[in-house]
């Protein structure tokens, strides 16, 4: 039995990838016992005792490395974790920096490098696009009112106003653009990204890079229904040769290590890169469901084994997300609040 810690167990309206990863691990050939890492006592994963054996509350990554490491050391002492699969962007830099120390303690992982992680900044998209043969929408990184006006004068409305890492709004006029520019800069700082809107099919690729230019499988999907937060609700697997080829080029060029997701918009023959995520997406169970157990392959890679590389999957498989209800005693919540664990 391998003990694996997984974060992102917040299966809410903006769901974390944790539960999908855990479902994949549980369906894999390696028997696992799962320790959930939560940031709030109310995260639904805390209450899913069939999927997650133990749960610990974590300090926010913004509190710094020391409290984060201390908490991990405590959990390690109690649980003897063998592998950790972090699934949330804000904690990734800490796990990447702590990888050597955690590894000495017997906690292994299979993560992107610091350099890889930095590629996810939206002002870095042109670099990735150039290496992969993808296009990017016209993008301006602006840090002042003047720069914002200059960028807007070169684009047609509506435009996207985005934070470097988080938040994205569609602005239909300059008043709206200024309003979003101000709210994003207040929350996330500068620069703010002003981007052309590209119309087309929203397609994403998930994969796991081996760190040497190869990969342990890729899956391309198209979003069919999205929520008001832009999160996938239903989707379908696709086999878009250009998109899959670009994903392979991406892995090869950057020698990507670990999980990743490429978000694109396909418009006729053109593929525009919109975002890259250095982790599994929340819909990762889709890959498991079509026979590509990427979480399990990542686990094997972290354990130093050679995972499967076969990635044949059928086009036309449907993904349906749905809501569920659970009724339980206050007991678990009480333990999380008073002890920070259950």
């Amino acid at each position: 039995m391998i003990k694996v810690a997984v974060s992102g167990i917040n299966a809410v309206d903006n769901p974390g990838p944790g539960l999908g990863i855990i479902k994949g691990l549980k369906e894999g050939a390696i028997p696992v016992s799962v320790v959930g890492l939560a940031y709030d006592a109310m995260e639904p994963g805390v209450y899913l005792t069939d999927l997650i054996d133990r749960v610990y509350l974590m300090p926010y990554p913004s509190e710094g490395e020391a409290p984060f490491l201390n908490r991990l050391l405590y959990i390690q002492e109690k649980e003897g974790i063998e592998v950790v699969i972090p699934a949330l962007d804000p904690e990734l830099p800490l796990f990447i920096d702590l990888e050597p120390r955690l590894s000495e303690l017997g906690v292994r992982s299979f993560l992107p490098t610091r350099k890889h992680f930095k590629l996810r900044a939206k002002d870095r998209l042109p670099v990735i696009a150039e290496a992969t043969g993808l296009k990017t929408p016209a993008t301006f990184a602006v840090s002042s009112y003047e720069e914002l006006q200059r960028a807007l004068s070169r684009l047609r409305f509506p435009v996207m106003v985005k934070g470097l890492f988080y938040r994205a709004f569609r602005a239909y006029n300059s008043t709206e653009a200024l309003q979003y520019f101000q709210s994003i800069s207040a929350e996330w700082g500068y620069p703010v990204i002003i981007q052309e809107i590209v119309e087309g099919e929203e397609m994403n690729v998930v994969g796991v890079g081996d760190g040497e230019g190869g990969h342990f499988g890729l899956l391309a999907i198209k979003k069919l229904w999205i929520t008001s937060l832009g999160k996938i609700w239903t989707g379908v697997t696709v086999k878009h040769p250009g998109l899959l080829e670009a994903a392979e080029k991406f892995v090869r060029h950057f020698r990507w290590r670990g999980a990743f997701e490429l978000e694109t918009i396909v418009s006729g023959e053109d593929i525009y890169l919109i975002e890259i995520n250095p982790r599994f997406p929340a819909w990762i169970y889709f890959a498991v469901g079509v026979g590509l157990n990427l979480p399990e392959r990542l686990l094997r890679a972290a354990l130093g084994e050679e995972p499967e590389r076969d990635w044949e999957y059928p086009a036309g498989k449907l993904y349906i997300r749905f809501t569920d209800d659970l009724v339980t005693d206050l007991d678990l919540f009480q333990r999380m609040v008073t002890r920070g664990e259950r």
Binding site: E201, M203, I221, K222, L224, G235, V236, T237, V238, K239, H240, P241, V266, A315, G316
Partner: peptide
Amino acid sequence: AISEEGFIFDPETGNS
């Protein structure tokens, strides 16, 4: 992919 019932799926774009 075209079914006898007239349902058509495009595996490249995901459109039906």
